[in-house]
Amino acid sequence: MEIGIDSFAVNLPAADGAGVTAAQRMAQLLEEIEIADRAGIDVFGIGEHHKDYTLDSAPAVILAAAAARTSRIRLTSAVTVLSADDPVRVFQDFATLDLISNGRAEMVVGRGSSLEAYPLFGHAMPDYDALFTEKLDLLLKVREHTHVTWNGRFRPALTGQGIYPRPAQEVLPVWLGVGGTPHSFARAGALGLPLMIAIIGGGFERFRPLVDLYKEAGRHAGHAPEQLKVGVHAIGFVAQTDQEARDLFFPGWARMFGIAARERGWAPPTRAQFDAACSPSGAYLVGSPETATLRARAASEALGGVSRITFQMSSGENDQAAMRRSIELLGQEVAPAIRRAGAKGTS
């Protein structure tokens, strides 16, 4: 199992009104990716949002800067809001990233749970799924062929133009990011794309029927079982003890989910909700290295085997020392323990 980190490049002022500039926060983010590279983390993902408190509207640019400062870690979006973008340009951006990183680029594409990109780029919400269906089709054709002839509803036709540059990898990895919609799981299986499931609430086991649907759709379409990889994106944070991890992460979590609650009309988040999500029956990977290891293994078992788990460590607080230490613990203690357990399980 690969272990990764996802970031949304959050930059909120501190509770006392102080804070860092956007440039300083970006420098911190690049430092986090460097630390993850040195610590042995397998993959680092940057989300895509277009909000006043996030700095990740252009993830490929951030990842390219990180590529020049790292040597082994894989670099991916988490996720690219493909419905609101031009698939040709997305492919060019990530093919360029692949060349800069010497073959370490990937992308996770999806419709996005934050919807601000749609009006920003002139798209209508009733076209939410039609946009994604058409643009995913084009992205996969561009990935397969340098010269593409294609016609669609939302973008001018292609009549055999060459699309450059081509990536360093023979096939640029594209994962399909999904939430809880059965159609999305079935689509990923039918296309034979690896699946990245965003799990931010409830328990891991409730997604097992959807994973089974994904694998069945893939088998029905003739894709090999090893092609049908499953990944999990879950909220996570590591400290020396469970209590320390919860106490460090909760204030920033409460700020982030408080913003989401106001935007979406939810009730304000509580500490009791957070602690429940961190419990063995919840879906958070927050705790000591031992707890994070057990929770990651439990998630994999609940879903019938997982190829990758990424810890969503973005927080409304900017405790950079705690973040650095969490990344180091994840790479130096959690990831090796998970790999040892996996090796024993296959021996």
Rank of each mutant, 00 (worst) to 15 (best):
S83I: 09
V142S: 06
M125E: 10
R89D: 02
L172V: 14
N151Q: 15
N151S: 15
I100T: 09
R155Q: 14
L158V: 08
E144Q: 13
V81A: 00
V148R: 00
G162V: 06
L136S: 08
V90G: 04
V81W: 01
K51P: 07
I163T: 10
M107G: 05
Y118K: 03
S77N: 07
A95D: 02
L75N: 12
R111D: 03
P59S: 11
A117V: 03
F121N: 04
R89Y: 03
L115E: 08
Y128D: 12
G112F: 03
G122V: 02
A64E: 10
D137G: 04
V88N: 00
P167R: 14
R143P: 01
V142M: 03
R72W: 08
D98R: 12
L172F: 11
P156Q: 00
L82V: 02
V81Y: 05
L99T: 12
I62R: 01
P59N: 06
T76L: 01
D93Q: 15
L120V: 07
P165W: 13
R72P: 11
E134R: 13
Y164D: 08
L55W: 07
V81M: 06
A117L: 10
G103F: 06
G160Y: 11
G162S: 15
F132L: 11
L158K: 05
V79S: 02
A130I: 06
Y53I: 10
P119T: 10
A78D: 05
E116S: 14
V88W: 00
D127I: 12
L138T: 00
A64K: 03
A84P: 05
L75M: 04
H145L: 12
W175Y: 15
A78K: 00
V142I: 11
V108P: 02
L172D: 09
V79A: 12
L136T: 09
E106L: 08
Y118T: 06
R111N: 03
R143Y: 03
D127A: 09
D137I: 02
L55K: 08
R155Y: 00
E170D: 14
P173D: 07
W150H: 08
I62Q: 13
L97S: 04
H147A: 14
L140F: 10
L158S: 05
L136F: 04
A157K: 14
S77Y: 00
S101Q: 13
T149R: 13
E170H: 15
A60K: 07
A117C: 03
V79W: 01
I100Q: 08
R74Y: 06
R143F: 09
